[in-house]
Design a protein around this nucleic acid. Structure first.
Lengths: 195, 195
DNA sequence: CTTCTATCTGAACATTTGTTCATATACGGT
DNA sequence: ACCGTATATGAACAAATGTTCAGATAGAAG
């Protein structure tokens, strides 16, 4: 055998990315072999190399695409009338966006150390750009006297760490709806940065 | 050659655990080979098997010992006079304990998925036991009207997630002292659960 | 129908993996 | 000095790893 019936890069490409994403998230990048990914797609390992130059690039592209989607999705969020409203929108956006892509988020946080230094630097820059958006909100709120945090940089990281925690426990069929989750977290964030 | 000069299990054992801990934390369990650990200790790979039945148990014991240390260290913390004081003590304890053992904490959170299901269940139980201590504080504070959180379980996870975030950025030579870090986080936690 | 190209197979490769074991040497007690 | 035991070596193993590539078949275009 050689080329198989119905084979097409528009089909196989996304399936490879999807399989890699799911396996990386579940077992970790280093623990997943190219043959496992290939098997999940229903293809031989060699075929993967029509779609990625190597395993590392496969991981890198998943992370890069995710970060780009995150940044451009947040760009769509309209500015509110004051920092408090901006912060509320940020919290809602972050929770919803992340819960819709648990695997991507998980990988973006867990597999950084498996990136070569150039790739790592690029992903870090993207992540930093996202965090800066939150810090801008906190700084502006601080400036106009709406918030009170001892250190906006630390507060930024603290808020994001707190929100990311949702991923570790939230299940769609759980006792709380997405709206309720958002409300609970917004309450805590709002108070944490309050005067 | 065979047995080497000065070799002793009281020396080699801890060195193996220390090397494994450091390498697992830096590169991840799956990415580290037994030969790398052995090389770090200055020994051949076969010698490791005098100290662990297999690679998986090496990871498991590191995690289990860490969790036991965490729990018994927290047991030493004396109860305060009210929930607010207990919470402040918890925040201080958690930050300091974790910053003193960044590798252990990192592994305990990152490598759970590399544990077989029995090991996983055991470590999860220990972690849960720790989280329950915090939740008890929050519930008691809620009961006596000192705190106000919509959901103590979520608040517990949110606080711990937030505090764990310290590990991702804190450096001993950074611009903030440990006392300052503790103060900044305590401020946020205190307000987040406040009335 | 023919031709060109896209897509995959299947075998091969050099390394590396976790683990075992016979064997050898050093240590500690008598 | 001797002996039993603790502790290591170093070679070996089968299996798995990432990656390459010649060859084969399917699809698309004329």
């Amino acid at each position: 055998m050689a080329r198989t019936q119905g084979s097409h890069s528009d089909i196989t490409g996304p399936r490879i990315r999807k399989a890699a994403l799911s396996l990386f998230a579940r077992h970790g990048y280093a623990a997943v072999s190219m043959r496992q990914i290939a098997a999940e797609v229903g293809v031989q390992a060699g075929a993967l190399y029509n779609y990625t130059p190597d395993k590392q690039s496969l991981l890198y592209r998943l992370m890069r695409d995710h970060m780009h989607e995150l940044l451009s999705a947040y760009d769509e969020v309209e500015a509110g009338s004051d920092p408090a409203e901006d912060l509320r929108k940020f919290v809602g956006f972050h929770i919803r966006f992340n819960l819709q892509r648990p695997d991507e988020v998980f990988i973006a946080y867990m597999e950084l150390r498996n990136l070569s230094s150039e790739y790592f630097a690029e992903i870090e820059t993207l992540r930093r750009r996202y965090e800066d958006q939150l810090e801008s909100i906190l700084r502006e709120g601080q400036r106009v006297g709406q918030f009170s945090v001892a250190d906006t940089k630390i507060a930024t990281l603290a808020v994001i760490a707190m929100l990311n925690g949702v991923l570790t426990w939230y299940r769609a069929q759980g006792r709380l709806s997405l709206d309720q989750v958002e409300q609970v977290y917004w309450d805590m964030v709002r108070k944490a940065v309050a005067i």
